[in-house]
Nucleic acid binder design. Structure first.
Lengths: 229, 229
DNA sequence: CGACCATTTGATATGGATCAAGCGATGTGG
DNA sequence: CCACATCGCTTGATCCATATCAAATGGTCG
C-alpha cells in the first residue's frame, strides 16, 4: 500500500540533508553513498513506514524524528524491536521480507533508498558490501543485547533503557524521550504501570529526576550502572 | 587461552567430513568454500570453544554434536543465545570480538575457520561476500524471533522451543534433546522447575509425550501451534 | 473551560520463582 | 554384584515481582 508512494518518492532527487552526529556503530561509511541515492520522505506521527512481511525493497535512513520497529502477536501483545533516531539506518534485511513493521513515532523525515541500488553498488564496490554486512552485524549485536535486557528485573530493564537512550542523546545526562510509556513498556517487555512506578522509584532514590513525563535527567549514573548488572 | 590450540589445529589439513543436510537458512553456499579451509576439531562436553570478548579471529561450523552460545550476567544469571546443530555456522561477528561465549553441549566436532581467510575470499568473490552477509542476516532474524519468545508465557515459550527443535530434527515429531533442562530454561528465560512442570502439563494435555527426559514426542502439533501464538 | 489522552497511583490477583524434598538413572568403590 | 553417592529431573509448598483492574491527576488542544 505504501509502496506506491515510496516508489514515486524515490524517483525524486535527494535533498542531501545532513543528519546530526550519531554513534558510528549505527551509521557507517555506507551512509555517504546512501546520502545521494535516496529521497527524503515525510511521515506523520504513528504512520506506518512498512509492514512486516512486506517485500524489503527499500532501506531507510532517519533524517529527523524517531521511528519504532515492532511485531504484534495475534492476541495484541506488541514487542518493539528498536527505536531509530536521526542518522540510523533501518529496514535492512538480507531476506526478501521485512521481519518487523516500522512506524514513525513523531513527525519524521526518512531517506528511502532502493535496496537493489545499494546491493548493486555492493557488487561492484566490496567496501560497500562490507559496510552492508557491518551494519547488519551491528543490528545483530544490538538485538543480542536487547535479549539480555528481557531477562532482567523491571528496575534493571528501565536502568538499561535509560543508559541506552542517554548514550545516544546529544546532552549526556538529559534525555528527551520521543516515545510514550506504552512504547517503552513494549520495548522492555513490561506494562506502562510498571514502567511508571519504576521511574517513580528511581526518582525517589534520587537516581533520576523526571521534570516532565517525557524528560529524564540522570542524577546518579553509578547507581544506574549498578542496576544495569 | 583456547586460541593457541585452535591456531595449531587450523594449520592441519581439513578432513572434508560432510555434514548432514540442514535448513538452507542456517548454512548457505558459503559452506562449500568453508568446507576445505578449516580444521575439524573435537571438543568434550562442557568445554569452552571461545569466550565472550575474545577476538573473533575464527568462525566455526558444527560437524557433529551440539554447541550453545551464552552470556552470563555478573550475578550468575545465564542467557543462552542459541543452540547450534550439525551444519550450523556460528561465531560469525562483524566486530572484533565475540559477543557471546560458546561451549560444546555434547562431544562435538567443529570445523574451525580463519576469519581472515573467509573475509579475504569475500573481497575477491562477491558471492561469498553476499553469503557472509546473508548468514549474519539469518542470525539476526533468528534472534529477533527469540526476543518474541521471551515476552510470552511459559507454555508458549516451551511450545515455541519444541516446534523450533522439531523443525530441525531429522524425524519430524520425535525430538532428541541434546541439552539439559537448565540449558532449556536459560534459553527460554525460565527456571528448570517451570520448564519441567510445563512439560508435565503438556504431557497431561496429551500434547506431547516424554518417554525419557531427553526425548520428546509431539502428539498434537495443532495445539502447539496454537500456543505458539 | 471542558474533553480527551497520557501518566501516575492504589488495591488486588497471579504466574512463575524460590525453597525444599523426593525420585530415578548412572556410575563407582567395596 | 550390590550399596551408596551423585546428578538431573520432577513434584510440592510458599512467596513475590509484576500484571491486572480501577481510579485519580495532569497536561494539551479545540
Amino acid at each position: 500500500m505504501l509502496t506506491a508512494a515510496i516508489q514515486s518518492a524515490s524517483t525524486r532527487s535527494a535533498k542531501g540533508q545532513g543528519a546530526r552526529t550519531v554513534p558510528a556503530m549505527r551509521t557507517g561509511a555506507l551512509a555517504s553513498s546512501i546520502e545521494m541515492m535516496g529521497a527524503p520522505m515525510p511521515f506523520a506521527r504513528n504512520v506506518e513506514i512498512y509492514g512486516e512481511n512486506e517485500p524489503a525493497d527499500y532501506l531507510y535512513k532517519v533524517i529527523s524524528g524517531t521511528v519504532r520497529t515492532y511485531k504484534v502477536l495475534n492476541d495484541g501483545r506488541r514487542q518493539i524491536g528498536s527505536f531509530y533516531l536521526p542518522g540510523d539506518i533501518f529496514g535492512l534485511e538480507a531476506g526478501d521480507e521485512h521481519a518487523y513493521s516500522a512506524e514513525a513515532i513523531t513527525e519524521a523525515k526518512v531517506l528511502v533508498i532502493k535496496r537493489s541500488a545499494v546491493v548493486g553498488l555492493a557488487a561492484r564496490d566490496n567496501n560497500v558490501a562490507r559496510q552492508l554486512w557491518s551494519l547488519t552485524a551491528s543490528e545483530l549485536h544490538r538485538v543480542q543485547e536487547h535479549i539480555l535486557l528481557l531477562i532482567k528485573t523491571a528496575q534493571e530493564r528501565v536502568a538499561g533503557f535509560l543508559l541506552e537512550m542517554a548514550a545516544r542523546a546529544p546532552s549526556g545526562n538529559e534525555i528527551d524521550l520521543p516515545m510514550s510509556r506504552q512504547d517503552i513498556a513494549d520495548y522492555l517487555g513490561l506494562t506502562i504501570e510498571t514502567v511508571s512506578r519504576t521511574f517513580t522509584q528511581l526518582e525517589n532514590a534520587a537516581t533520576i529526576s523526571v521534570p516532565t513525563s517525557r524528560r529524564i535527567v540522570l542524577r546518579n549514573r553509578a547507581a544506574l550502572n549498578r542496576l544495569n548488572a
